[in-house]
Amino acid sequence: MGSASLLMWADIVHLPAIQFKRPEATMVFDVDPDEARAVRKRMLDEVSSERTFVTGGHLEFPALGYVAREGGAYSFVPELWVAAH
């Protein structure tokens, strides 16, 4: 990964299966749904454009990867883990 960047986020994405495809989707834990929607979209745009690695508690194992833009939606692309010998 050399000069790659890593962003550890907490609640940018609560439900990966839904919110990567529909970043406008909010949930009860979003205290300010409009702000949560705007921040999620801005962060997904940023990390997908810069191909920044992300990790966070709500991401499925291996919970480390990058975000790819797919039109108006996104997807999480996990980083493959390779065991050292």
Rank of each mutant, 00 (worst) to 15 (best):
T55Y: 03
A83D: 06
A38Y: 13
F20V: 00
A38P: 08
S49R: 14
D45S: 05
H85D: 14
L44C: 05
M43R: 06
Q19H: 10
W9Y: 07
K41E: 14
Y74W: 03
A63K: 01
L7Q: 08
W81E: 05
E35G: 11
D34Q: 13
V54C: 08
H58L: 04
M43V: 14
V13H: 00
S49M: 14
L7A: 12
R51L: 08
Y74D: 00
E24Y: 05
L80T: 08
P62D: 08
G65A: 03
D32E: 13
F29P: 07
A73L: 07
M27W: 11
E24V: 02
H85C: 10
I18Q: 08
W81D: 04
F76G: 01
S48I: 09
E24C: 01
H58I: 01
A38M: 12
D30V: 02
G56C: 02
V31W: 13
E79V: 09
E46F: 15
P62E: 07
D30Q: 05
F53A: 13
E79P: 09
L7T: 08
T55H: 03
V13R: 00
D45I: 02
P16T: 02
D34K: 10
V31C: 10
P16F: 01
R69L: 06
A38K: 11
H85W: 12
P33L: 04
I18F: 01
Y66Q: 03
S5N: 12
M1D: 12
L80M: 09
V82T: 14
R42Y: 07
T26I: 06
V82C: 15
A17T: 02
D30N: 02
G57C: 07
M1Y: 06
D32T: 05
E70Q: 14
V13N: 00
F61L: 04
V82M: 12
E60A: 09
P23G: 05
A4S: 15
S48E: 07
M43H: 11
G2A: 13
E60P: 03
S75V: 05
D11P: 01
H85A: 14
I18C: 07
D11F: 02
E50S: 11
D34R: 12
A10S: 12
Y66W: 09
R40M: 07
E50A: 14
E60S: 09
L59S: 03
D34G: 08
V39M: 03
E35D: 15
M43S: 08
T55P: 01
D34T: 11
F29N: 13
T26A: 08
F53D: 09
V13M: 01
A83N: 04
A38C: 10
A17S: 11
V67H: 05
P23R: 04
